[in-house]
């Protein structure tokens, strides 16, 4: 399998996980509303657990968006400069993004280690699970970005994407 194919398979898997996480969040938060009004009780873990699933969904989804080049950006400058200059800008941009991802990974590892024995108030889950989302995000995005950098260095510009969309 090509590297590109491998990345696509990985994203397909992440998409499935994200769908499951979102469904679990819907069930838990809705379940709590129903329990509170219907049965005068509640799932005590619902609030904390749904927040943690949300954090994980955010970072796994952000990996997908990175692979699909779907993160919000602007091409005001890039669209107006010659191809060579554009390539130089994109290589520089890619290196900066790699650096930022590296810092997120590095900091998340430190935080995961510091929180090894710390527990979440309600569920009692160790807090490193929370910071591990940053570790997975950091490693995955380094992989995707480094491959992207390799493509750029070979002079391959990414295909023109549809207008990036934010759903606001």
């Amino acid at each position: 399998m090509t590297m590109q194919g491998l990345i696509e398979q990985y994203c397909k898997f992440l998409r499935l996980v994200c769908v499951l996480l979102l469904a679990a969040m819907v069930v838990m938060v809705m379940g709590n509303v129903v329990l509170r009004y219907g049965f005068n009780s509640g799932l005590l873990v619902s609030e904390e657990l749904s927040r943690w699933l949300f954090v994980w969904m955010t970072f796994l989804g952000a990996i997908i968006a990175l692979a699909e080049r779907a993160h919000l950006g602007t091409d005001v400058l890039l669209a107006r400069i010659p191809k060579k200059a554009r390539l130089v800008c994109l290589i520089l941009a890619q290196i900066l993004m790699i650096y930022a991802s590296w810092l997120v990974l590095d900091g998340s590892l430190t935080q995961a280690e510091l929180n090894w024995f710390v527990t979440a108030p309600v569920t009692g889950t160790p807090v490193w699970v929370f910071y591990a989302s940053g570790v997975v995000f950091g490693i995955s995005s380094l992989w995707i970005l480094l491959y992207g950098l390799y493509q750029l260095l070979r002079g391959r510009l990414p295909e023109e994407e549809d207008a990036n969309q934010s759903h606001l």
């Binding site: 509170r36 005068n40 005590l44 609030e47 904390e48 108030p121 309600v122 009692g124």
Partner: peptide, 8 residues
């Protein structure tokens, strides 16, 4: 129905 801190 009482709000308490999220602590077991």
């Amino acid at each position: 129905k009482t709000r308490v801190m999220g602590d077991p």
